[in-house]
Amino acid sequence: MLDLFYTPFAEFEFMQRALVGVIAIALGGGPVGVFLMLRRMSLTGDAMAHAILPGAAVGYLLAGLSLPAMTIGGLFAGVIVAVAAGLVSRFTALKEDASLAAFYLLSLALGVTIVSLRGSNVDLLHVLFGTVLALDDSTLLLLASISTMTVLALAVLYRPLVLECVDPIFLRSVSRAGTPTHLIFLGLVVMNLVGGFHALGTLLAVGMMMLPAAASRFWSSDITMMMIVSIAVGIVSGFSGLLLSFHAELPAGPAIILSAGAIYVMSLLLGREGGLLWLAWPGRHLEA
């Protein structure tokens, strides 16, 4: 019985690599997802994941399936869309959600067009859904570096990040850290999405950020605890998703995200902090 959980990883190197990759993604994406959620930017994350596509596609057009070219292209496109959407919402009547929706639809269409200019449908699938079962050394190194930088940066920015969500006016009155913090945070989001993009593709990368984060909200109302839960959910869904894909011969990326989705639904029902079951049967009210 235990063999089912153990053997695939013991016997196949590509499974080991995939597991290391998703753990790295969970370590960086989990905490970033929690902050995206707390800052009410969950959809921003989604939009930016799509925005990465044309950049990665241009990299692909110039250099084929090359790690550095697609990474740099993706980073560029992500930052440009984030800044552009911010500027449009600040200086025009359009709110940020609308401008982001406009930009990400444009990016997705543009990206798919660019990839089809050169590649086959296989390449297109690769870009859209990733290749978690074919991670080479340099990609793993990239994923590990991104999560390391993310954790360090979040440790440094923790206070202004929290304060900017709760009480931005207070932060502005005591410090000038607000705007740089926001920009660095957006940078972290883009970085993690580009990392996730290599493993899970542009459409699913954000899943390893938002599903664990959303699940964690149902288990704790403490930010540190939420980040830990979020990372754990990410790792568990990576592990079980890979096993699921191995035994049931499902595509690996979607299997991982489906696992995360299953944990989210379970948390939604059972979570101690506002899960549906607790809401439906709260028990009799207390003395005080």
Partner: peptide, 19 residues
């Protein structure tokens, strides 16, 4: 002007005064 739904304890909110 404060986001009251944010998961933050009273202690942490007050401690921010030491910024």
């Amino acid at each position: 002007e404060i986001d009251r739904s944010f998961p933050l304890s009273v202690y942490d909110l007050v401690a921010m005064g030491l910024w």
